[in-house]
């Protein structure tokens, strides 16, 4: 595959392009970080994505194929803040690749580049699968993702100085795209409905557009909804207008029951963009979430 791609590049360009030969081997943990890599690094990267968009990034295992991909990687791009804690550190450790360990330029964590929500709080698992370092689902905020793209551009510039200006320009172009879309979305979300989500995985989106957050179906993070919790939420929210948001790997029963009881819409969307998404693909994916919030009826 790699050879074929190189050959095609040679045929089309007609001479040995230094960028194709020097392409960075980049591994992204998810399709959202993969989209940023595609957007900022473009043809300068050979990208491998470790997890498909329909999986819960918290519950994966360190599979041999991941370890293999990380073995030769020059940069790993994770969402971070312990989201991938169960498998990525182990896979990196087993990959026997010193250049991508945390603390090295070859390790990049999106969450470490931006302000996080829900930082601090007690580290007590009676409160569920909590992340005292902050909520890791930063991929749900396009503005933070633009900041991440800018930081990623700088990192790529450090790893591949020859194309530094290209990385910076691409990151900047993406940030402008985001600004444009966010301005439009802000107008559409002027009178947002309140949101009940399954897990605390959409708070960055709600926070960005000042959308009322009316709680989660999980009583505490990582614990499935119990009937009593759903009942008390229904009592609390009766008479209000809102929407129930949940994602592809979460069970359907609880969202359906609360949506029906309150007469609300329920929308099920993937948390991550399609596996082949670039910056545009990521923004199209966010567009679907905005549409879900603004749809009538």
């Amino acid at each position: 595959m790699k050879k074929l791609r190189l050959l095609l590049t040679l045929v089309f360009v007609g001479l040995v392009p230094s960028s194709a030969l020097a392409a960075l081997d980049i591994v992204a943990s998810s399709s959202s970080t993969g989209a940023l890599v595609r957007e900022v690094a473009g043809e300068h990267a050979n990208l491998t994505i470790l997890a498909p968009p329909d999986r819960n990034l918290h519950y994966l295992q360190a599979r041999p194929s991941m370890i293999r991909a990380l073995r030769g990687a020059e940069l790993v791009v994770a969402l971070g803040a312990d989201l991938e804690v169960g498998w990525l550190p182990l896979a990196i450790n087993q990959a026997a690749n010193p250049s991508i360990q945390p603390g090295k330029p070859g390790y990049f964590e999106a969450a470490a580049q931006v302000n996080l929500l829900d930082v601090g709080g007690p580290a007590d698992r009676a409160l569920g699968d909590v992340h005292p370092t902050g909520n890791p689902h930063v991929n749900m905020d396009p503005v933070r993702m633009a900041e991440v793209a800018t930081a990623l551009g700088e990192r790529l510039a450090m790893l591949d100085e020859g194309n530094a200006s290209d990385y910076r320009a691409r990151a900047q172009a993406f940030a402008q795209q985001v600004d444009k879309r966010v301005a439009a979305w802000r107008q559409r979300l002027a009178n947002p409905p309140g949101v009940v989500s399954f897990h605390k995985d959409v708070i960055y989106l709600l926070d960005r557009f000042d959308i009322p957050n009316w709680g989660t179906l999980e009583p505490v993070p990582g614990v499935p909804p119990a009937a009593s919790h759903i009942r008390s939420m229904i009592d609390e929210l009766r008479g209000k207008t809102g929407v129930v948001l949940f994602t592809t790997y979460q069970p359907k029963q609880a969202p359906a029951s609360i949506a029906e009881a309150l007469g609300w819409r329920q929308v099920r969307l993937p948390l991550e963009p399609p596996i082949d998404a670039d910056g545009d693909g990521y923004l199209e994916h966010m567009q679907r979430w905005v549409d879900a919030l603004t749809a009538k009826g």
């Binding site: 971070g80 945390p102 969450a111 580049q113 931006v114 302000n115 996080l116």
Partner: peptide
Amino acid sequence: ADTAETAKQASTASA
């Protein structure tokens, strides 16, 4: 400064 702070917090489990 905030970004730096975030990075710091992310790097140590107990602040």
